[in-house]
């Protein structure tokens, strides 16, 4: 394919409960699509090679690196990003736990951490600190040393468990 040539493909997907249709270049990553085409700039790029996890979103319920997925591959999928967590300005229990536990400092890894944490909690409402620590090893944080993120995940799971039981 020659430089500058732009073949485009149409995609339709669901992002945070909203149906989205677009024409995109094959090379456009899901991360760049979210950020530049949908203005969902909460999904961050830290390394663009899948190492850091700042761009982690959920695709069909599973955490993925949005930098390592082409938008054309996301055609027909359901994508959840950090922007979909809060409802009517009220923080999601995972966000609230990060806030009260100070599970963030600069906030840059936070959206990816939140989405990965949400997945961990969905899979395991009784998640222990050890399990949370192991599960979070997929995402790099340079500020916190992870300790309060681990605490936040356990706290959020506990709170969400209570909410469900009520």
């Amino acid at each position: 394919m020659n430089q500058g040539q732009t073949e485009r493909h149409s995609v339709s997907l669901t992002v945070n409960d909203r149906a989205v249709e677009a024409e995109v270049e094959p090379r456009l990553s899901l991360a760049d699509f979210l950020r530049r085409h949908l203005d969902l700039v909460g999904t961050h790029l830290g390394c663009e090679q899948g190492a850091c996890g700042a761009c982690t979103v959920l695709v069909d319920g599973q955490s993925v690196r949005a930098c390592l997925m082409l938008t054309v591959q996301a055609d027909g999928t359901t994508v959840e990003t950090v922007e979909g967590l809060a409802t009517n300005g009220e923080l999601h229990p995972v966000q609230e736990a990060f806030r009260t536990k100070q599970g963030l400092q600069c906030g840059f890894c936070t959206p990816g951490m939140l989405m990965r944490s949400l997945e961990l909690i969905r899979d395991n409402r009784g998640i222990t600190a050890e399990q949370a620590r192991e599960g979070l090893a997929s995402n790099m944080c340079r500020c916190t040393g992870y300790q309060y993120i681990v605490e936040a995940v356990v706290e959020a799971a506990s709170n969400m468990d209570t909410e469900v039981n009520q």
Binding site: R35, R36, L40, V41, G42, T43, H44, L45, T81, V82, E83, L85, A86, L91, Q95, F98, R99, T100, Q102, L104, C106, G107, F108, T110, P111, L114
Partner: peptide
């Protein structure tokens, strides 16, 4: 007092306003 940080809400909402968010 270990009050929750004022900075955090915007980061938790994905509205951090980082440099790459500015277009």
């Amino acid at each position: 007092k270990s009050i929750p940080r004022l900075e955090d809400r915007r980061f938790l909402l994905g509205k951090g306003g980082y440099i790459d968010d500015l277009v």
